[in-house]
Design a protein around this nucleic acid. Structure first.
Length: 484
RNA sequence: GGGGCCAUCGUCUAGUGGUUAGGACAUCGGGUUUUCAUUCCGACAACAGGGGUUCGAUUCCCCUUGGCCCUGCCA
Protein backbone atom coordinates (compact mmCIF):
# COMPACT_ATOMS: atom_id res chain seq x y z
CA UNK A 1 0.00 0.00 0.00
CA UNK A 2 1.15 3.50 -0.76
CA UNK A 3 2.39 5.50 2.20
CA UNK A 4 3.61 9.03 1.71
CA UNK A 5 4.62 11.72 4.14
CA UNK A 6 4.66 15.45 4.61
CA UNK A 7 7.49 16.44 6.94
CA UNK A 8 7.54 20.19 7.50
CA UNK A 9 10.14 21.85 9.60
CA UNK A 10 8.62 24.26 12.13
CA UNK A 11 10.98 27.10 11.36
CA UNK A 12 8.41 29.41 9.84
CA UNK A 13 4.71 29.84 9.13
CA UNK A 14 3.09 27.30 6.83
CA UNK A 15 4.61 28.03 3.44
CA UNK A 16 2.55 27.88 0.28
CA UNK A 17 5.18 25.58 -1.24
CA UNK A 18 4.73 23.18 1.65
CA UNK A 19 1.02 23.31 1.01
CA UNK A 20 1.52 22.29 -2.59
CA UNK A 21 3.89 19.47 -1.65
CA UNK A 22 1.38 18.27 0.92
CA UNK A 23 -1.38 18.47 -1.66
CA UNK A 24 0.50 16.43 -4.25
CA UNK A 25 1.40 13.83 -1.65
CA UNK A 26 -2.17 13.72 -0.50
CA UNK A 27 -3.57 13.39 -4.02
CA UNK A 28 -1.06 10.71 -4.91
CA UNK A 29 -1.84 8.71 -1.78
CA UNK A 30 -5.59 9.01 -2.10
CA UNK A 31 -5.49 8.22 -5.79
CA UNK A 32 -3.86 5.03 -4.63
CA UNK A 33 -2.79 1.97 -6.55
CA UNK A 34 -4.00 -1.59 -7.07
CA UNK A 35 -4.26 -1.96 -3.29
CA UNK A 36 -6.63 0.96 -3.09
CA UNK A 37 -6.09 4.38 -1.54
CA UNK A 38 -2.88 4.90 0.39
CA UNK A 39 -2.08 6.84 3.52
CA UNK A 40 -0.27 10.04 4.31
CA UNK A 41 1.86 10.54 7.38
CA UNK A 42 2.35 13.96 8.91
CA UNK A 43 5.45 14.46 10.96
CA UNK A 44 7.42 17.38 12.26
CA UNK A 45 11.12 17.70 11.53
CA UNK A 46 12.29 19.71 14.50
CA UNK A 47 15.83 18.50 14.88
CA UNK A 48 17.02 22.05 14.42
CA UNK A 49 16.38 23.16 17.97
CA UNK A 50 17.61 26.68 17.34
CA UNK A 51 15.02 27.54 14.76
CA UNK A 52 12.07 25.29 15.54
CA UNK A 53 9.22 26.68 17.59
CA UNK A 54 5.91 25.37 18.88
CA UNK A 55 4.13 28.39 17.44
CA UNK A 56 5.24 27.54 13.93
CA UNK A 57 4.41 23.92 14.51
CA UNK A 58 0.89 24.85 15.50
CA UNK A 59 0.49 27.14 12.53
CA UNK A 60 1.56 24.41 10.14
CA UNK A 61 -0.71 21.80 11.68
CA UNK A 62 -3.69 24.13 11.82
CA UNK A 63 -3.22 25.19 8.22
CA UNK A 64 -2.92 21.73 6.78
CA UNK A 65 -5.79 20.44 8.88
CA UNK A 66 -7.93 23.34 7.78
CA UNK A 67 -7.18 22.58 4.15
CA UNK A 68 -7.94 18.94 4.77
CA UNK A 69 -4.59 17.68 3.55
CA UNK A 70 -2.81 16.86 6.78
CA UNK A 71 -3.08 13.14 6.14
CA UNK A 72 -4.13 10.18 8.21
CA UNK A 73 -1.34 9.72 10.73
CA UNK A 74 0.77 12.12 12.69
CA UNK A 75 0.89 14.54 15.53
CA UNK A 76 -2.30 16.25 14.44
CA UNK A 77 -4.17 13.05 15.21
CA UNK A 78 -5.17 12.94 18.89
CA UNK A 79 -3.20 10.24 20.64
CA UNK A 80 -0.66 9.82 17.86
CA UNK A 81 2.82 10.02 19.33
CA UNK A 82 6.27 9.74 17.89
CA UNK A 83 5.77 11.79 14.78
CA UNK A 84 7.95 14.58 16.06
CA UNK A 85 11.64 14.05 15.47
CA UNK A 86 12.56 15.63 18.78
CA UNK A 87 10.74 12.72 20.43
CA UNK A 88 12.70 10.08 18.57
CA UNK A 89 16.27 10.77 19.56
CA UNK A 90 16.58 7.27 21.08
CA UNK A 91 15.77 5.70 17.75
CA UNK A 92 18.31 7.80 15.92
CA UNK A 93 20.86 7.08 18.61
CA UNK A 94 20.61 3.35 18.18
CA UNK A 95 20.82 3.71 14.39
CA UNK A 96 23.91 5.82 14.83
CA UNK A 97 25.47 3.32 17.22
CA UNK A 98 24.88 0.52 14.77
CA UNK A 99 26.46 2.47 11.94
CA UNK A 100 29.47 3.21 14.14
CA UNK A 101 29.74 -0.38 15.30
CA UNK A 102 29.61 -1.69 11.76
CA UNK A 103 32.23 0.88 10.80
CA UNK A 104 29.88 2.45 8.27
CA UNK A 105 30.26 5.72 10.07
CA UNK A 106 33.05 7.32 12.06
CA UNK A 107 33.82 10.19 14.38
CA UNK A 108 35.48 13.28 13.04
CA UNK A 109 37.16 16.06 14.99
CA UNK A 110 38.07 18.38 12.16
CA UNK A 111 37.55 21.98 13.16
CA UNK A 112 35.18 24.22 11.33
CA UNK A 113 38.03 26.55 10.47
CA UNK A 114 40.06 23.78 8.88
CA UNK A 115 37.04 22.61 6.90
CA UNK A 116 36.31 26.12 5.68
CA UNK A 117 39.90 26.58 4.62
CA UNK A 118 39.88 23.22 2.87
CA UNK A 119 36.77 24.16 0.90
CA UNK A 120 38.24 27.50 -0.07
CA UNK A 121 41.39 25.84 -1.35
CA UNK A 122 39.45 23.26 -3.30
CA UNK A 123 37.37 25.98 -4.89
CA UNK A 124 40.45 27.97 -5.78
CA UNK A 125 41.79 24.90 -7.56
CA UNK A 126 38.47 24.63 -9.39
CA UNK A 127 37.66 21.40 -7.67
CA UNK A 128 34.42 20.25 -6.13
CA UNK A 129 34.49 20.81 -2.41
CA UNK A 130 34.36 17.57 -0.49
CA UNK A 131 35.61 16.26 2.82
CA UNK A 132 39.19 15.02 2.53
CA UNK A 133 38.82 12.07 4.88
CA UNK A 134 41.32 13.24 7.46
CA UNK A 135 39.60 11.50 10.37
CA UNK A 136 38.46 8.52 8.37
CA UNK A 137 40.73 5.91 9.82
CA UNK A 138 41.73 7.53 13.08
CA UNK A 139 39.31 5.46 15.13
CA UNK A 140 38.25 8.54 17.11
CA UNK A 141 35.73 8.24 19.97
CA UNK A 142 34.21 11.67 19.83
CA UNK A 143 33.31 14.50 17.52
CA UNK A 144 30.72 14.71 14.78
CA UNK A 145 29.65 11.55 13.00
CA UNK A 146 30.25 11.09 9.29
CA UNK A 147 28.97 8.40 7.00
CA UNK A 148 31.75 6.43 5.38
CA UNK A 149 31.17 6.50 1.64
CA UNK A 150 33.07 3.69 0.05
CA UNK A 151 35.39 4.64 -2.80
CA UNK A 152 34.35 1.74 -4.93
CA UNK A 153 30.71 2.56 -4.55
CA UNK A 154 29.42 2.85 -8.11
CA UNK A 155 27.22 5.59 -9.44
CA UNK A 156 24.07 6.21 -7.48
CA UNK A 157 20.94 5.79 -9.51
CA UNK A 158 17.26 6.06 -8.94
CA UNK A 159 14.19 6.24 -11.07
CA UNK A 160 12.55 9.52 -10.29
CA UNK A 161 8.80 9.34 -10.82
CA UNK A 162 8.78 12.84 -12.25
CA UNK A 163 12.19 13.11 -13.90
CA UNK A 164 13.02 9.62 -15.02
CA UNK A 165 16.44 8.00 -14.63
CA UNK A 166 18.73 9.93 -12.35
CA UNK A 167 22.44 9.20 -12.04
CA UNK A 168 24.86 10.83 -9.65
CA UNK A 169 28.52 9.93 -9.94
CA UNK A 170 29.95 8.52 -6.74
CA UNK A 171 32.92 10.87 -6.97
CA UNK A 172 30.59 13.79 -6.34
CA UNK A 173 29.84 12.55 -2.87
CA UNK A 174 31.89 12.71 0.26
CA UNK A 175 31.71 11.48 3.83
CA UNK A 176 28.98 13.81 4.99
CA UNK A 177 28.06 14.58 8.56
CA UNK A 178 25.00 12.71 9.79
CA UNK A 179 25.05 13.79 13.43
CA UNK A 180 26.69 16.33 15.68
CA UNK A 181 26.78 13.64 18.33
CA UNK A 182 24.93 10.47 19.28
CA UNK A 183 22.16 12.55 20.79
CA UNK A 184 22.11 15.22 18.15
CA UNK A 185 21.31 13.70 14.76
CA UNK A 186 21.11 15.74 11.58
CA UNK A 187 18.61 15.93 8.78
CA UNK A 188 19.77 13.15 6.47
CA UNK A 189 19.88 10.58 9.22
CA UNK A 190 16.54 11.52 10.71
CA UNK A 191 14.60 11.55 7.43
CA UNK A 192 15.98 8.20 6.40
CA UNK A 193 15.28 6.66 9.79
CA UNK A 194 11.79 8.12 9.85
CA UNK A 195 10.93 7.15 6.30
CA UNK A 196 12.02 3.62 7.04
CA UNK A 197 10.29 3.31 10.40
CA UNK A 198 7.10 4.86 9.08
CA UNK A 199 7.21 2.52 6.10
CA UNK A 200 7.14 5.29 3.55
CA UNK A 201 6.89 3.93 0.02
CA UNK A 202 7.11 7.21 -1.91
CA UNK A 203 9.06 10.31 -1.08
CA UNK A 204 7.50 13.23 -2.95
CA UNK A 205 9.20 16.55 -2.31
CA UNK A 206 10.54 19.71 -3.94
CA UNK A 207 13.33 19.58 -6.47
CA UNK A 208 15.61 21.38 -4.07
CA UNK A 209 16.03 17.94 -2.53
CA UNK A 210 17.40 16.29 -5.65
CA UNK A 211 20.96 16.65 -4.49
CA UNK A 212 20.07 15.25 -1.08
CA UNK A 213 18.69 12.10 -2.59
CA UNK A 214 21.95 10.24 -3.28
CA UNK A 215 23.11 10.91 0.25
CA UNK A 216 19.92 9.48 1.63
CA UNK A 217 20.09 6.47 -0.67
CA UNK A 218 23.56 5.82 0.71
CA UNK A 219 22.17 5.93 4.23
CA UNK A 220 19.30 3.58 3.42
CA UNK A 221 21.87 1.16 2.02
CA UNK A 222 24.23 1.51 4.96
CA UNK A 223 21.40 0.73 7.34
CA UNK A 224 20.32 -2.19 5.18
CA UNK A 225 16.91 -0.76 4.43
CA UNK A 226 14.75 -0.73 1.36
CA UNK A 227 15.01 2.49 -0.58
CA UNK A 228 11.65 4.18 -1.24
CA UNK A 229 10.62 5.61 -4.59
CA UNK A 230 11.38 9.28 -5.16
CA UNK A 231 9.55 12.00 -7.03
CA UNK A 232 10.89 15.54 -7.21
CA UNK A 233 8.43 18.31 -7.81
CA UNK A 234 9.16 21.54 -9.67
CA UNK A 235 9.57 24.64 -7.56
CA UNK A 236 7.07 27.46 -7.24
CA UNK A 237 8.65 30.66 -8.47
CA UNK A 238 8.47 34.42 -7.97
CA UNK A 239 7.64 36.54 -10.97
CA UNK A 240 11.37 36.84 -11.70
CA UNK A 241 11.64 33.04 -11.74
CA UNK A 242 13.60 32.75 -8.53
CA UNK A 243 12.41 30.33 -5.86
CA UNK A 244 9.25 31.66 -4.18
CA UNK A 245 10.39 33.84 -1.35
CA UNK A 246 9.06 36.03 1.38
CA UNK A 247 10.82 39.10 0.07
CA UNK A 248 9.06 39.02 -3.26
CA UNK A 249 5.76 37.34 -2.52
CA UNK A 250 3.26 36.45 0.10
CA UNK A 251 4.34 32.95 1.02
CA UNK A 252 2.43 31.86 4.07
CA UNK A 253 -0.96 30.26 3.78
CA UNK A 254 -2.27 32.69 6.38
CA UNK A 255 -1.57 35.63 4.11
CA UNK A 256 -3.86 34.18 1.50
CA UNK A 257 -6.53 33.09 3.93
CA UNK A 258 -6.53 36.52 5.52
CA UNK A 259 -6.96 38.18 2.16
CA UNK A 260 -10.06 36.15 1.54
CA UNK A 261 -8.99 33.31 -0.67
CA UNK A 262 -11.03 30.18 -0.14
CA UNK A 263 -9.20 27.00 0.87
CA UNK A 264 -10.72 25.08 -2.04
CA UNK A 265 -9.64 27.75 -4.49
CA UNK A 266 -6.10 27.81 -3.14
CA UNK A 267 -5.89 24.04 -3.47
CA UNK A 268 -7.32 24.10 -6.99
CA UNK A 269 -4.83 26.77 -8.02
CA UNK A 270 -1.89 25.00 -6.43
CA UNK A 271 -2.85 21.70 -8.04
CA UNK A 272 -2.49 23.37 -11.43
CA UNK A 273 0.92 24.79 -10.62
CA UNK A 274 3.03 22.04 -12.08
CA UNK A 275 0.37 19.53 -12.96
CA UNK A 276 -2.59 19.37 -15.29
CA UNK A 277 -4.89 17.09 -17.18
CA UNK A 278 -4.76 16.72 -20.96
CA UNK A 279 -8.28 18.07 -21.28
CA UNK A 280 -9.09 21.72 -20.82
CA UNK A 281 -10.58 21.60 -17.36
CA UNK A 282 -9.53 24.32 -14.92
CA UNK A 283 -11.88 23.96 -12.00
CA UNK A 284 -11.75 20.69 -10.10
CA UNK A 285 -13.40 19.30 -7.01
CA UNK A 286 -11.15 17.49 -4.56
CA UNK A 287 -12.66 14.19 -5.69
CA UNK A 288 -11.77 14.95 -9.29
CA UNK A 289 -8.25 15.89 -8.37
CA UNK A 290 -7.80 12.64 -6.50
CA UNK A 291 -9.22 10.67 -9.37
CA UNK A 292 -7.14 12.37 -12.05
CA UNK A 293 -3.85 12.96 -10.29
CA UNK A 294 -0.81 11.03 -11.47
CA UNK A 295 2.87 11.85 -11.04
CA UNK A 296 3.66 11.27 -14.69
CA UNK A 297 1.71 14.42 -15.52
CA UNK A 298 3.71 16.55 -13.15
CA UNK A 299 5.86 19.13 -14.90
CA UNK A 300 9.62 19.33 -14.62
CA UNK A 301 9.99 23.08 -14.99
CA UNK A 302 9.24 25.52 -12.19
CA UNK A 303 5.98 27.46 -12.22
CA UNK A 304 5.51 31.15 -11.53
CA UNK A 305 2.93 31.95 -8.89
CA UNK A 306 0.39 34.05 -10.78
CA UNK A 307 -1.92 35.85 -8.38
CA UNK A 308 -4.19 36.97 -11.23
CA UNK A 309 -5.06 33.41 -12.01
CA UNK A 310 -5.61 32.67 -8.32
CA UNK A 311 -7.99 35.64 -8.25
CA UNK A 312 -9.92 34.26 -11.17
CA UNK A 313 -10.20 30.78 -9.68
CA UNK A 314 -11.21 32.24 -6.32
CA UNK A 315 -13.90 34.32 -8.00
CA UNK A 316 -15.25 31.19 -9.66
CA UNK A 317 -15.43 29.45 -6.29
CA UNK A 318 -17.18 32.40 -4.69
CA UNK A 319 -19.77 32.46 -7.46
CA UNK A 320 -20.33 28.74 -7.15
CA UNK A 321 -20.64 28.78 -3.38
CA UNK A 322 -23.06 31.70 -3.31
CA UNK A 323 -25.24 29.92 -5.83
CA UNK A 324 -25.08 26.53 -4.16
CA UNK A 325 -25.13 27.27 -0.47
CA UNK A 326 -25.32 30.87 0.61
CA UNK A 327 -25.55 29.99 4.31
CA UNK A 328 -22.30 28.12 4.18
CA UNK A 329 -20.77 30.91 2.15
CA UNK A 330 -21.85 33.50 4.67
CA UNK A 331 -20.38 31.44 7.46
CA UNK A 332 -17.01 31.47 5.70
CA UNK A 333 -17.21 35.12 4.67
CA UNK A 334 -18.62 36.31 7.98
CA UNK A 335 -15.38 37.61 9.51
CA UNK A 336 -14.71 39.68 6.41
CA UNK A 337 -18.21 41.09 6.25
CA UNK A 338 -19.00 41.69 9.89
CA UNK A 339 -15.75 43.41 10.64
CA UNK A 340 -16.80 46.19 8.26
CA UNK A 341 -20.58 46.08 7.95
CA UNK A 342 -23.09 45.85 10.74
CA UNK A 343 -26.11 44.54 8.93
CA UNK A 344 -28.58 41.71 9.26
CA UNK A 345 -27.01 38.47 7.95
CA UNK A 346 -30.28 37.48 6.28
CA UNK A 347 -30.27 40.73 4.35
CA UNK A 348 -26.63 40.31 3.32
CA UNK A 349 -27.30 36.79 2.11
CA UNK A 350 -30.18 38.04 0.03
CA UNK A 351 -28.05 40.75 -1.51
CA UNK A 352 -25.20 38.36 -2.22
CA UNK A 353 -27.59 36.31 -4.29
CA UNK A 354 -28.77 39.29 -6.29
CA UNK A 355 -27.70 38.80 -9.91
CA UNK A 356 -26.18 42.26 -9.84
CA UNK A 357 -23.49 40.95 -7.53
CA UNK A 358 -22.75 37.74 -9.34
CA UNK A 359 -19.10 37.48 -10.25
CA UNK A 360 -18.33 40.81 -8.61
CA UNK A 361 -16.03 39.49 -5.94
CA UNK A 362 -12.61 37.97 -6.47
CA UNK A 363 -11.82 37.76 -2.80
CA UNK A 364 -13.85 37.71 0.38
CA UNK A 365 -12.20 40.97 1.33
CA UNK A 366 -13.83 42.60 -1.73
CA UNK A 367 -17.28 42.01 -0.28
CA UNK A 368 -17.66 44.76 2.34
CA UNK A 369 -16.51 47.43 -0.08
CA UNK A 370 -18.77 46.12 -2.79
CA UNK A 371 -21.78 46.08 -0.54
CA UNK A 372 -21.20 49.25 1.42
CA UNK A 373 -22.78 51.65 -1.12
CA UNK A 374 -26.11 50.11 -0.19
CA UNK A 375 -25.75 51.02 3.45
CA UNK A 376 -23.33 53.80 4.06
CA UNK A 377 -23.88 57.54 3.91
CA UNK A 378 -23.61 59.26 0.57
CA UNK A 379 -20.01 60.27 -0.03
CA UNK A 380 -19.35 63.77 -1.23
CA UNK A 381 -18.73 63.66 -4.97
CA UNK A 382 -17.75 66.32 -7.48
CA UNK A 383 -20.22 67.64 -10.01
CA UNK A 384 -17.99 66.42 -12.84
CA UNK A 385 -18.53 62.86 -11.80
CA UNK A 386 -22.25 63.03 -12.30
CA UNK A 387 -22.18 65.33 -15.33
CA UNK A 388 -19.75 63.13 -17.11
CA UNK A 389 -18.37 64.58 -20.32
CA UNK A 390 -18.04 61.20 -21.91
CA UNK A 391 -21.82 60.99 -22.22
CA UNK A 392 -22.21 64.55 -23.38
CA UNK A 393 -24.19 65.59 -20.34
CA UNK A 394 -24.83 69.32 -20.20
CA UNK A 395 -25.81 71.21 -17.11
CA UNK A 396 -29.30 71.86 -18.46
CA UNK A 397 -29.74 68.29 -19.46
CA UNK A 398 -28.70 67.09 -16.05
CA UNK A 399 -31.22 69.26 -14.28
CA UNK A 400 -33.94 68.17 -16.63
CA UNK A 401 -33.07 64.53 -16.13
CA UNK A 402 -32.91 64.74 -12.35
CA UNK A 403 -36.23 66.57 -12.13
CA UNK A 404 -37.83 63.92 -14.26
CA UNK A 405 -36.29 61.12 -12.22
CA UNK A 406 -37.53 62.66 -9.01
CA UNK A 407 -40.98 62.97 -10.46
CA UNK A 408 -40.99 59.35 -11.61
CA UNK A 409 -39.61 58.14 -8.30
CA UNK A 410 -42.34 59.88 -6.37
CA UNK A 411 -44.86 57.90 -8.35
CA UNK A 412 -43.25 54.58 -7.42
CA UNK A 413 -43.86 52.64 -4.25
CA UNK A 414 -41.53 50.06 -2.76
CA UNK A 415 -40.51 48.72 0.58
CA UNK A 416 -36.89 49.19 1.44
CA UNK A 417 -35.06 45.99 0.55
CA UNK A 418 -37.84 44.52 -1.54
CA UNK A 419 -35.74 43.16 -4.36
CA UNK A 420 -38.83 42.10 -6.27
CA UNK A 421 -39.30 45.76 -7.10
CA UNK A 422 -35.92 46.06 -8.73
CA UNK A 423 -37.37 45.24 -12.13
CA UNK A 424 -40.10 47.84 -11.74
CA UNK A 425 -37.68 50.58 -10.76
CA UNK A 426 -35.36 49.65 -13.54
CA UNK A 427 -38.11 49.81 -16.13
CA UNK A 428 -39.37 53.12 -14.83
CA UNK A 429 -35.93 54.71 -15.04
CA UNK A 430 -35.11 53.24 -18.40
CA UNK A 431 -38.45 54.59 -19.60
CA UNK A 432 -37.20 58.09 -18.90
CA UNK A 433 -34.55 57.65 -21.55
CA UNK A 434 -37.21 57.42 -24.20
CA UNK A 435 -39.48 60.02 -22.69
CA UNK A 436 -36.76 62.61 -22.80
CA UNK A 437 -35.29 61.36 -26.04
CA UNK A 438 -31.78 60.98 -24.61
CA UNK A 439 -29.14 58.29 -24.57
CA UNK A 440 -28.89 55.62 -21.90
CA UNK A 441 -25.72 57.02 -20.43
CA UNK A 442 -27.17 60.52 -20.21
CA UNK A 443 -29.93 59.38 -17.92
CA UNK A 444 -28.80 56.22 -16.18
CA UNK A 445 -25.29 57.26 -15.30
CA UNK A 446 -26.44 60.37 -13.40
CA UNK A 447 -29.01 58.32 -11.52
CA UNK A 448 -26.44 55.80 -10.37
CA UNK A 449 -23.92 58.41 -9.34
CA UNK A 450 -26.60 60.42 -7.55
CA UNK A 451 -27.48 57.32 -5.56
CA UNK A 452 -23.99 56.06 -4.81
CA UNK A 453 -21.71 59.04 -5.20
CA UNK A 454 -19.21 56.61 -6.65
CA UNK A 455 -17.65 55.94 -10.00
CA UNK A 456 -18.04 52.24 -9.39
CA UNK A 457 -20.99 50.80 -7.55
CA UNK A 458 -23.88 48.41 -7.86
CA UNK A 459 -26.61 49.00 -10.40
CA UNK A 460 -28.99 51.97 -9.88
CA UNK A 461 -32.01 49.74 -9.34
CA UNK A 462 -30.21 47.70 -6.73
CA UNK A 463 -29.16 50.87 -4.99
CA UNK A 464 -32.68 52.26 -5.01
CA UNK A 465 -34.14 49.06 -3.62
CA UNK A 466 -31.80 48.87 -0.65
CA UNK A 467 -31.61 52.58 0.01
CA UNK A 468 -35.40 52.75 0.15
CA UNK A 469 -37.66 55.31 -1.47
CA UNK A 470 -37.07 58.03 1.06
CA UNK A 471 -33.29 57.95 0.89
CA UNK A 472 -33.38 57.55 -2.89
CA UNK A 473 -35.41 60.73 -3.21
CA UNK A 474 -33.17 62.57 -0.80
CA UNK A 475 -30.09 61.66 -2.79
CA UNK A 476 -31.67 62.62 -6.09
CA UNK A 477 -32.64 65.99 -4.65
CA UNK A 478 -29.16 66.48 -3.35
CA UNK A 479 -27.82 65.86 -6.84
CA UNK A 480 -30.25 68.38 -8.28
CA UNK A 481 -29.10 70.94 -5.74
CA UNK A 482 -25.53 70.28 -6.72
CA UNK A 483 -26.39 70.72 -10.38
CA UNK A 484 -28.21 74.02 -9.84
C1' G B 1 34.51 27.30 -8.49
C1' G B 2 31.97 22.26 -8.61
C1' G B 3 27.59 19.27 -9.45
C1' G B 4 22.61 18.89 -10.86
C1' C B 5 17.72 20.27 -12.80
C1' C B 6 14.99 22.87 -16.42
C1' A B 7 13.54 25.54 -21.19
C1' U B 8 6.04 26.12 -25.95
C1' C B 9 2.23 32.84 -25.93
C1' G B 10 3.51 38.02 -20.49
C1' U B 11 1.79 33.71 -16.92
C1' C B 12 -0.18 28.42 -16.09
C1' U B 13 -0.02 24.85 -19.77
C1' A B 14 -1.88 20.99 -24.13
C1' G B 15 0.44 18.73 -28.07
C1' U B 16 3.02 16.04 -32.30
C1' G B 17 8.66 13.30 -36.49
C1' G B 18 4.31 16.23 -41.17
C1' U B 19 -1.01 20.53 -36.63
C1' U B 20 -4.00 26.78 -39.19
C1' A B 21 0.96 24.72 -32.52
C1' G B 22 -4.85 24.08 -28.79
C1' G B 23 -6.94 25.89 -23.95
C1' A B 24 -6.98 29.03 -19.48
C1' C B 25 -5.43 33.65 -16.85
C1' A B 26 -3.89 38.50 -18.08
C1' U B 27 -4.17 42.35 -21.91
C1' C B 28 -6.83 44.82 -25.93
C1' G B 29 -11.44 45.53 -28.99
C1' G B 30 -16.77 44.87 -29.55
C1' G B 31 -21.92 43.38 -28.01
C1' U B 32 -25.55 42.66 -23.82
C1' U B 33 -31.03 48.19 -20.89
C1' U B 34 -25.63 53.28 -17.55
C1' U B 35 -20.03 52.92 -15.06
C1' C B 36 -17.30 49.12 -12.92
C1' A B 37 -18.01 44.16 -12.61
C1' U B 38 -20.46 40.04 -14.84
C1' U B 39 -21.57 37.53 -19.31
C1' C B 40 -20.97 36.65 -24.59
C1' C B 41 -18.02 37.31 -29.01
C1' G B 42 -13.43 38.56 -31.14
C1' A B 43 -8.16 39.96 -31.36
C1' C B 44 -3.09 40.02 -29.92
C1' A B 45 0.51 36.56 -28.38
C1' A B 46 4.96 31.07 -28.02
C1' C B 47 8.11 26.31 -29.80
C1' A B 48 15.63 30.47 -26.63
C1' G B 49 19.95 30.14 -30.43
C1' G B 50 23.29 27.02 -33.35
C1' G B 51 24.56 22.43 -35.19
C1' G B 52 23.27 17.54 -36.36
C1' U B 53 19.83 12.84 -37.37
C1' U B 54 15.82 12.74 -40.95
C1' C B 55 12.40 13.33 -47.03
C1' G B 56 10.71 16.39 -42.97
C1' A B 57 11.97 18.76 -36.80
C1' U B 58 8.76 22.55 -31.89
C1' U B 59 9.18 17.16 -31.06
C1' C B 60 15.17 12.87 -31.09
C1' C B 61 20.80 13.91 -30.12
C1' C B 62 24.87 17.44 -29.15
C1' C B 63 26.61 22.27 -28.07
C1' U B 64 25.68 27.27 -26.61
C1' U B 65 22.79 30.61 -23.96
C1' G B 66 19.59 31.58 -20.11
C1' G B 67 17.07 30.54 -15.52
C1' C B 68 16.96 27.89 -11.16
C1' C B 69 18.52 24.41 -7.24
C1' C B 70 22.33 22.25 -4.28
C1' U B 71 27.29 22.90 -2.82
C1' G B 72 26.15 23.49 6.11
C1' C B 73 28.14 20.40 12.31
C1' C B 74 19.94 24.03 8.28
C1' A B 75 15.88 21.35 6.68
Amino acid sequence: MIRVRIPPSPTGLLHIGTVRTALYNYLFAKHGDADGPGKMVFRIEDTDKERSTKEYEKDIIDGLVRLGIAGDEGIHVPGDKGYRQSERTDVYKSDLERLLKEDKAYYCECSKERLDQMRAEQQAKKLASRYDGTCRDKGLKSGVIRLRVSEDRGDIKWHDLVRGEMVIHARELDDFVIARSLDDPLYHLTVVADDHDMEITHVIRGEDHISNTPKQILLFEALGWKVPAFAHLPLILNEDKSKLSKRKNKVSLNDYLEEGYLPEAILNFLALLGWNTPDEQEIFTMEELIEKFTLDRVHKGGAVFDVKKLDWINGEYIKKMVAENVDEFYRVAKPFIESKLNEDPALIKKILQDPDFEGRFKKLSDIPEGLSPLFTALPDYPLELIAREKFGITSEMLKKVLKKVIEVTKGLEWEKGDSNKSQMISEAYVGIVETLGLKNGQVLWPIRVALSGLEKSPNFATLAVYLGKEETLARLKKALQKAS
